[in-house]
Computed example of a mutant assay.
Amino acid sequence: MDAPCLPLTLPLPQSPQYARACAALGTETRGGTLTGSGSASGREWLHWQTQARHLPGLGRVELLSRGPVTRDCDAPAPLDAWFEGFLAARPRGPLLLNADGTPPEVLRRAGFWPLLTPASLALLPLGPETEMRAALAQKWRNRLNRAQRSGLRLRRLALRGDHWLLPTEAAQARARRYRNLPPGFLAAYAAANPGDALIWEARLEGAPVAAIAVLRHGLMASWTSGVTRPEGRRSGAMNLLLWEAARWLAAQGHLWLDMGILNQQDAPGLTHFKLGTGARVHRLGGTWMHSRALAPLARRLPSASAR
């Protein structure tokens, strides 16, 4: 009897939508799936996708971000065997892995060298409106209720490269010194995936006061950008935008909204805001590097060094 499984839920960097945007920008990607394992023959059990980058001092580097993705099954995917074949067949040069779900011991056995400790994401479960509202923190819900009475007018529109959100958010990222997907990538994603790149915008007395960008990719969606002007902050526009986006995405069949990295140290207010939606903390697996020259030494690292 087949082991019970949930469908493969692909984060943004592992999605075909992301690959199409990369291709439009001239970035090389490659990937594949592993199908069939024992009695589960014919079903996808594992998916992977890499992008090529050129980094100073390292040259051509392959990036495997938040992969490989495995099904949530009683029977685990054969990761050791997959890594052995994948690493033997890949091009020469370094491989950077932003791990998500792969046990550290598997990575050590495969010869990966740990570079950075794990970060955490906020993942919001999407479903019936009553359940999503019940999961809201009380203060978040109160602010949403006030925003719904504030006179804000919302609209949903296809993301365009000339929308004011993109350059405004890019300037905000520079000023606050954080990294985000650049406007050019968002525009390429929208062009390569019609209907999968959306903006929710809030206006007050006809003037735009806040907006968010959301990328859709299979069972998941990702909140990638957001800007709130002073009038938007006072009226709770961001609460209303995210609530309406979550309601719409749930109605379209999406199961999760990825709200991005949690950074309690540098952005405690944003972290509190994200978790107030009822989002779950999802801990990633850290950043690792694989090179053929270092792999034998990496395999001999003590376990404490990889935590």
Rank of each mutant, 00 (worst) to 15 (best):
L95I: 11
L96Q: 10
L96V: 03
L96R: 10
N98E: 13
A99G: 02
A99V: 01
A99W: 01
D100F: 04
G101M: 02
G101C: 01
G101K: 02
T102M: 04
P103Q: 05
P103M: 07
P104G: 15
P104F: 15
V106P: 01
V106T: 14
L107R: 07
R108G: 12
R109P: 13
R109W: 12
P114W: 15
P114K: 12
L115S: 04
L116N: 04
T117E: 00
P118K: 11
P118D: 10
P118H: 04
A119Y: 12
A119S: 14
A119I: 09
L121D: 14
A122K: 01
A122R: 02
A122L: 08
L124D: 01
P125V: 00
L126F: 03
L126P: 05
G127I: 06
G127H: 06
P128G: 15
T130W: 02
T130K: 05
E131C: 07
E131S: 09
M132F: 07
R133V: 14
R133K: 13
R133H: 09
R133W: 02
A134F: 00
A134P: 08
A134M: 04
A134V: 07
A134I: 12
A135T: 07
A135Y: 05
A135N: 11
L136F: 07
L136W: 05
L136G: 07
A137N: 10
A137S: 06
Q138E: 13
K139H: 12
K139P: 01
K139C: 01
K139R: 08
W140I: 10
W140F: 05
R141K: 13
N142C: 02
R143G: 05
L144N: 08
N145A: 13
N145M: 03
N145Q: 11
A147H: 06
A147N: 04
Q148L: 07
Q148V: 03
S150Y: 11
S150V: 00
G151F: 14
L152R: 03
L152A: 06
L154I: 03
L154W: 09
L154C: 03
R155F: 13
R155Q: 15
R155A: 14
R156L: 15
L157D: 08
A158T: 15
A158M: 09
A158F: 08
A158L: 09
A158K: 06
R160Y: 00
R160L: 10
G161M: 06
G161Y: 00
D162L: 04
H163T: 13
H163A: 10
H163Q: 13
L165F: 04
L165R: 01
L166H: 00
P167N: 10
P167L: 11
E169Q: 11
E169A: 09
E169T: 02
E169Y: 09
A170Q: 15
A171N: 12
Q172D: 02
Q172W: 04
A173W: 02
A173M: 04
A173R: 02
R174P: 02
R176H: 06
R176F: 00
R177C: 09
Y178P: 00
R179T: 02
R179L: 15
L181F: 15
L181D: 06
L181W: 14
L181Q: 11
P182G: 09
P182V: 09
P183A: 14
P183I: 11
P183D: 03
G184N: 11
G184R: 14
G184T: 12
G184I: 05
